[in-house]
Write a protein that binds this DNA or RNA. Structure first.
Lengths: 214, 214
DNA sequence: AGACTTAGCGTACACTGTTCGCGAAGGTGT
DNA sequence: ACACCTTCGCGAACAGTGTACGCTAAGTCT
């Protein structure tokens, strides 16, 4: 069994019949399906059909279904566009977070993926590298910086997931109202249905990052 | 189709043959299996076998597999033990977060669940109620408090997931080393393999919560 | 006692990830 | 040019999944 990450596997030797498809091509097809039908639509058979090939053929390019998910997650991490560090590290990092949210919005399935598995691949690594570059002059310990990155990802993904499934919010709201009517949860009942304030994420990110990297 | 959450469904009418099992019993069996074999072991057939019954019978108690997962997630949220608000809201909330981590440690499958779906049920609601009770005198807007709770959950779950699967960390580390050796990622290569500092979570939670609820 | 309602079960269906063997394809070396 | 040989693409097969449905038996109510 190959315990290495998929990106480290050695390239095929030149001999033999050449492959008619590339791993990138397969990844793109999978992303296309996920964007259209959601993560559950990304089955080996569906991806193969999108490419006009057989399901078993995919296993020439990918070890298993999870590998395919890893490839997808890493691929869309390539959509980040990094600006040169401006000197204001806090604003730069918030920028990264907000850019992440845009990616999550473009690919609603990504939140579930990043929350479930670590994104490590060429593009995921690039994000880490940029994050560290922005914090190059910052006195915090390396481990604290990495913790901050992980937390930033978790928070952005969680908020993206929340805004991606408003049905959940509706069902929850109905249940909360039901419970509040029971009378045993005074603070819950006292919640005011406030006018949705404008986008809370930028400020939340500022505060979280500032708190973590004091 | 019933769009209501499972906990709102009306109790059965007294007539007819009484059920020989309870929903709680089924949920406990599912949790037991998940604790032992992980989330993927929680199939309808496995849970049914654990109870010595047929797979189809479970659908008398649960609408579908996802409902069962919701029940499991909510049930273990009943393991929180809430103390009276001490007056120091920050410490109280950190306490909640650390207690959450203990629950995640006892039930490693829970992180994936809470990161994937919202936990709304009797026990999940109790957590929210307690969170709001602690912040009863706090001037922040209600919506900000709820955001803080969601972020707290995301952060604790993410850190629990990370510590639950050190294999991922190992594979990642190997790949990072491989990339760093390439030379294109100076900041990554400059990371010092520091001695693991003592538990960073309490301080991180303090800072995040203090930042969010300034 | 009889009627009625519901539980439990077994079977069936469509789908999933994955494996394996076979035939064909296309470069490489002589 | 030809043979070789590695690799690809494919189709069938297997074990497992969630779920629907019809039947029978088991209780409760009138």
């Amino acid at each position: 069994m190959d315990t290495e990450l998929i990106w480290m596997r050695p390239p095929k030797s030149g001999a033999g019949r050449p492959a008619s498809r590339t791993r990138a091509e397969i990844t793109e097809a999978a992303v296309r399906i996920a964007d259209r039908d959601g993560l559950s639509g990304v089955s080996m058979r569906n991806v193969a059909a999108e490419l006009g090939t057989g399901a078993g053929s995919l296993y020439r390019y990918v070890d298993n279904h999870d590998d395919l998910l890893d490839l997808m997650a890493d691929q869309v991490h390539g959509e980040y566009e990094f600006a040169e560090p401006s000197g204001d590290w806090l604003s730069d990092l918030v920028r990264v977070g907000l850019q992440g949210r845009e990616i999550f919005r473009r690919h609603p399935w990504l939140a579930e993926l990043t929350l479930t598995r670590a994104v490590v691949g060429p593009h995921g690594i690039d994000v880490t590298e940029h994050f560290l570059a922005v914090l190059a002059g910052h006195p915090a310990a390396d481990s604290d910086k990495l913790v901050a990155l992980a937390m930033l990802n978790a928070v952005v993904a969680a908020s993206a997931k929340a805004e991606a499934s408003p049905m959940d919010a509706l069902r929850s709201a109905r249940y909360v109202a039901h419970v509040a009517a029971q009378g045993n949860h005074p603070h819950l009942a006292a919640l005011k249905p406030e006018p949705a304030a404008d986008d809370p994420l930028p400020e939340a990110l500022r505060r979280i990052l500032a708190g973590l990297l004091a």
